[in-house]
Amino acid sequence: MKKKTLVATLVAACSLCAPAWAGQTLDTVLKRGVLHCGVSDGLPGFSYTDATGNYAGIDADFCRAVAAALFGDAKKVKFTPLTAKERFTALQSGEIDVLSRNSTWTISRDVGMGMSFTGVTYYDGQGFLVNKKLGVKSVRELNGATVCIQAGTTTEMNLSDYFRTNGMNYTPVTYEKSDESAKALESGRCDVLTSDQSQLYAQRIKFANPDDYVVLPEVISKEPLGPVVRQGDSEWFNVVRWTLFALVAAEEYGITSSNVDQMAKTSTNPEVRRLLGLDTDFGKDMKLKKDWAYQIVKQVGNYGEVFERNVGKGSPLKIERGLNAQWNKGGLQYAPPFR
């Protein structure tokens, strides 16, 4: 009899043992007190460990901004470096709470893989890096070239589409890590390295002779890079998405990490006051504190500061704002109203 009871109990228990998780990420993270954030395995400007062992870059700073919104402390982040191949599985399996790892927003990733993109932290496009010795001036001259790529990226597909539609041949050499493909170009295993343009600039500064290499003028794809969360958890999705909008809006309203305290005291601009939680408390609906956006700007800065510090004028990459400028300055960065 006892055995029967045991089996019956087991069966009964099993109907409950599929973990109900939907809608719980926010509670779990708040309870845990630390944000688990997936970043890249070493890409200057986006996420890499600097000389002091800290993660730096736009993607890393975005993780910090989420932590600042959640806990009022940008340091409460546990970074998990992931290769392109590992990243989505890590998110799907719940190993990380948010993936902030220069990942391109595409329809197949958004609808078929159980993930949702929360916005765009960086508008990128695929480019080509070649050795100047080859004397190549345009992608159109690359017929028959050997091309180095990182495995499991949209880049791989774009490359194939572009060469096919232009009737050109190529030999792909595919590596798991972006560093490996960059080294393969440097050693001459391939003629050209293709990747998102921002990555090409980032990889080039790691070369022994960066000036020997040139980024070709063509951009052959749209690569909107953004943070990703698991699908079906709108509470958590909102927190991550509005963290990004808070960063962008803060820049639009001219709030920076250095003037945010003063703005909070003196500003009469209703938009600034709403964003900083002085009049309306948007935080409550997201289970956050009233000053969540204030904490983001105070501890991490606004979008413009994050950009310039990591990839723009304040960095060795010196990338122009371009598409990543504010919407009213000719770019695409646009936050919906805080109202």
């Binding site: 191949k85 599985t89 799907q92 197949s108 495995a151 499991g152 791989e156 595919t174 798991e176």
Partner: peptide
């Protein structure tokens, strides 16, 4: 492993 359990896995998400 590299091609199918790597690239294809990543392109399709069917781990």
């Amino acid at each position: 492993v590299g091609l199918f359990a790597g690239t294809v896995l990543n392109q399709t998400g069917q781990a």
